[in-house]
Amino acid sequence: MQLLYAIAGITLILFVLSDLITTTLSFQGGGRMTNFLSEKTWRLCLKMAGNDGKKKMLERVGQMLLVLIILTWVAGMWLGSFLLLLSDPGSVLDSNTEEITTAWEKLYFAGYTLSTMGNGDYKPGSYVWDIVANLLAFSGLAFITISITYIMPVLSAVILQVKLSVFLSSLGNSPQQMLLNCWNGKNFDRLLQHDADLADMIIQHSQNHKAYPIIHYFHSIEQRQAVILNLSIFDETINFLKYGVQEEARPSDADLLTVRGAQDFYLQVLNRHHKNEEQKPYTFPVMNWDALIEAGIPLRMDRLREFQSPEIFKERRETLTYLLYQDGWSWKDIYRPDPV
């Protein structure tokens, strides 16, 4: 039984350290425990909100998850250290009486050793446990330092996420409005004026999402700060430029290469999320292009109806459908009856 305690304790400590290092230092996403905890907590909260991205309770999930993940690491390290100490009745002694400590006293010793704030009431029972206590103290110090420093880049990534979303929203809050705002009467050069800055922000946000996937759960109920919603609107705007606008008025594929490449990278990073079994096959609401026709934008009228077919831009739209669904939004929030 004592050997089992030692094996369980060492296994748990190594598992937590592996999850901590993967989440904070690998820049390749969260560890297994972190990802599991984040996804399950978010889905539970989203379900409680009725899958409605406008519910205010969703705004605090990101902050709550950040604290919950750190507390889970603390609990795992503490429990693992406690189990390791339990493997030997004489692992910890009372400093005054030299008596063997109880389980509760070992739990206390494990906690203050990890926090490096020992008060001398208890001491390791042998030279071997002296080394173990030192290792636990070093691990605790490194763990606390990494956990605190992890918070700062996450918050910086969230700030960039909001900045990107507001920037996109300023171009328009629907594909139709974006097209109108970027139309100068002859072409869409206004859109290309911002393509380098926009592509840079999208790529940086994608890389942040890859390194710190927890930013996905920092949700905003305001459309202008909802990054997934605004990135979907922008992607549909480019889709329509390429498919529904006559060639002489639309930017060439070469002109759109920079921003389209950034969008493709974003979808590639986010595409690792598996499709949810609860997700229904997506359909588009009726798209209203009247304002574009009135503005004199030369459209390919024969393609307007085809554009809302799920077979057009199928792969990227399936990814966006899932992302919208997982964030409490839908295509109805993008293609509204009054888009302008």
Rank of each mutant, 00 (worst) to 15 (best):
S220H: 06
Y217V: 11
A226W: 10
L229D: 07
E222F: 08
D200L: 14
Q207F: 07
I221T: 15
P213E: 00
Y212W: 13
A211T: 00
H205L: 11
A226Q: 06
N208V: 03
Y212C: 05
A211S: 02
I221F: 14
I214W: 00
A226M: 07
N230P: 02
I202Y: 03
R224L: 00
A226G: 02
I202E: 03
I203S: 05
Q204A: 10
H219T: 06
A211P: 03
Q204F: 07
V227T: 11
I215S: 12
I221G: 12
H209V: 05
V227S: 08
R224F: 01
H209T: 12
V227H: 05
I228T: 09
Q225C: 01
A226L: 04
N230K: 03
S206Y: 06
H205T: 11
Y217P: 09
L229I: 07
M201G: 01
L231Y: 02
H209R: 04
I202R: 13
H216N: 08
Q204D: 14
I215N: 07
H209N: 05
H216C: 01
S220Q: 03
L229Q: 09
Q207K: 13
S232W: 08
I203L: 14
S220E: 05
Q225L: 01
P213A: 00
R224V: 04
V227M: 01
I215P: 07
I228H: 11
Y217C: 10
Q204H: 13
I214V: 06
H219I: 06
I228Y: 11
H205Y: 14
I202M: 08
S232G: 06
H219A: 02
Q225P: 02
S206C: 02
N230W: 09
Q204V: 05
I202D: 13
E222W: 05
H205S: 07
H209D: 10
I203E: 13
A211W: 01
Q204Y: 00
S232N: 11
Q207S: 12
I202A: 03
Q207Y: 15
H205F: 15
I203V: 13
Q225M: 01
H216K: 07
D200G: 00
